[in-house]
Write a protein that binds this DNA or RNA. Structure first.
Lengths: 355, 355
DNA sequence: CTGTTAGCGCTTTCAA
DNA sequence: TTGAAAGCGCTAACAG
């Protein structure tokens, strides 16, 4: 057999089992095999099982390239990997990608990772490249800004896409987002329930929309429960811990020293831990702390950090569902999906404060 | 036209600009356009620029599926995303993937992410699926075990692949790995240089080969410098912080209390921080700490954590180079590549200890 | 229900 | 140096 003669790379390249091989083995024509795969209803039961047996036997899978060329479907979704600043990588990116691969895989789609070519800031050429090369049926984006030129570009290109986050209304888009406001309201509610009256907020300074949303949500939460908020601080450079430490110290030194601090992210919360300790106070006893994102570290810290968990799998499947609905031309399952975060209460905020 | 009837997906699907369009625009035949792309030397300078102008003008890119069908090349590398335990996600995975995408992109290749279907533990069916569907030209693997059935499977399948890590010798493989032993020797050397005499080691209990390598390297490092090592500990469940805390306490309570602790990973080091504090000691002053991996958190901690940085970009480009060499049938640039980690000294271990 | 025919967009002989 | 013809593996019409 020719196939057996080829030593290496035999299966991957030429010489792989084709639809013709299956047809021959099952004693039918190519077309019947194709029907078995794409329109089983048209095939008589007997033939069906016989062909399926042959497929199984030979380990046949349709060549994706051939199928794509014919149908125009790529069965691939392109994910634009965020230009992750090496200084502040997203520890959840790995988990999110896995969730994405699983969600897409459930629907028979694959995930193609792409990025702007190194050294380039503009993602548009990279997007155009994928479109022009017909490498994907649609696009997935994360970390979308209020006004995002990438979304703009995809809209113009007339290509299906879905985003995690969302721009200002005005641009048509299918999106999934964490309900940042409600999440932070819930944090405020939790702190109120624990008996806290004076609480501080440690915000991040970033153009990502959740920055403002979380602060606003927290503000509303304070009002809901008649809490007294020490001023919401905006460290200038969230990647510089010294800056954040200074901000926390300012909070702690204030005449109205808060008994709890809510941070806009877990990383900020960690810095708050350090600052609180440096001030001679004990986290969880003197000052409660709550973070956001629920990165793995939260469980490792002492005390373990209360945080808002991102429903990564739900986000991923929501994105895939919305994107596929467009690709298939179905009515979308609602254009946007606002997901609640899950408050995971741990030791950093579980002590009840006396009035 | 049937194609024009399709409403959305217009550019991505049918109706995209084809080689024929370019040929028409440039007033040449299809093949000439193809030659411009694949064998520019064969085309007269004048024609070349004219065709290139038309390509630019129309934004033409060859349809990947068509090209693949013809050539057998997929220009795609499949990366098997580790089955990331939700309990212990790898915070560097995002950065590693980005490095991989960049390295592959430099060579004109894309990265296809794939995983075993949810609920399945065995990656082999997923691998077979990619092979049989001819979706990739080769495979990339990480977190390889000493005896790894996935490597075994790829060898059997006769498909090109490269791994981050390596199995026991015996299986043919092209690999890139961190020189874990040397890295830990360097850590020991660093601690010796700082004047430490009694140092402890906090090991992880895992079947990943680096676990043993790092411990062994550290042991050798101790000998090199005549250091006294408190027993190397193996927390039973590295994901359970309480367990690790207990281990560190045991170290600190020992009659030969170490003045420094080297941890096999940053996460363990963080737990060591907590345990040291719980014992009423100050990290960096009473006890120096060193981690490994240099996750972003290291810079955020107080004191900032000394750690061994993984050269992710070099790892990625080394993997891609080795894989492509096989795919192209070139002689590989050396089968294995052992890379040094970079010791990043920070405040957690920069105080010099008096003798 | 099954087989025949055609062609997706591209590259690769081979001729001119 | 350029053009004509063939065909990669598959699926969608259509014919039997």
């Amino acid at each position: 057999m020719a196939a057996a003669r080829r030593p290496a790379a035999s299966r991957a390249g030429r010489g792989a089992v084709t639809i013709e091989d299956v047809a021959k083995a099952a004693g039918v024509s190519r077309q019947t095999v194709s029907n078995v795969l794409n329109a089983p209803a048209r095939v008589r039961a007997g033939t069906l099982t016989r062909v399926q047996a042959a497929i199984e036997e030979l380990g046949y899978r349709p060549d994706q390239s051939a199928r794509s060329l014919r149908t125009g479907e790529r069965r691939t979704l392109a994910y634009l990997a965020p230009v992750d600043s090496p200084s502040d990588p997203n520890p959840l990116m790995g988990g999110f990608l896995e969730a994405l691969v699983d969600a897409a895989g459930d629907e028979g789609y694959r995930i193609l990772l792409f990025r702007p070519s190194p050294g380039t800031l503009d993602s548009r050429p990279a997007i155009d490249e994928v479109i022009a090369g017909r490498q994907a049926d649609g696009f997935l984006l994360a970390d979308v800004l209020r006004s995002d030129y990438r979304v703009d570009h995809l809209v113009r290109a007339g290509v299906p896409f879905a985003v995690f986050g969302r721009t200002d209304p005005g641009l048509p888009q299918h999106w999934v987002d964490l309900d940042n406001k409600s999440a932070m309201r819930a944090v405020a509610a939790h702190l109120a329930a624990q008996g806290h009256r004076r609480v501080g907020y440690l915000g991040a300074a970033s153009e990502l929309p959740w920055t403002a949303d979380r602060r606003e949500g927290f503000r509303v939460g304070l009002r809901d429960h008649g809490l007294e908020g020490t001023s919401a601080l905006e460290p200038l450079d969230p990647t510089d811990p010294a800056d954040t430490v200074e901000a926390v110290h300012a909070l702690l030194r204030s005449s109205q020293r808060p008994t709890a601090i809510a941070a806009a992210s877990d990383m900020l919360a960690v810095t708050a831990y350090e600052a609180i300790r440096a001030a001679g106070l004990v986290v969880g006893r003197d000052v409660a702390v709550v973070g956001c994102h629920d990165i793995p570290l939260c469980r490792i810290l002492t005390p373990a950090l209360t945080s808002v968990r991102l429903p990564l799998r739900t986000i991923a499947s929501g994105l895939v569902a919305r994107l596929l609905a467009q690709i298939r031309g179905e009515r979308a399952p609602g254009q946007g999906l606002l997901l609640p975060g899950e408050l995971v209460v741990r030791a950093s905020s579980s002590r009840v404060v006396e009035a």
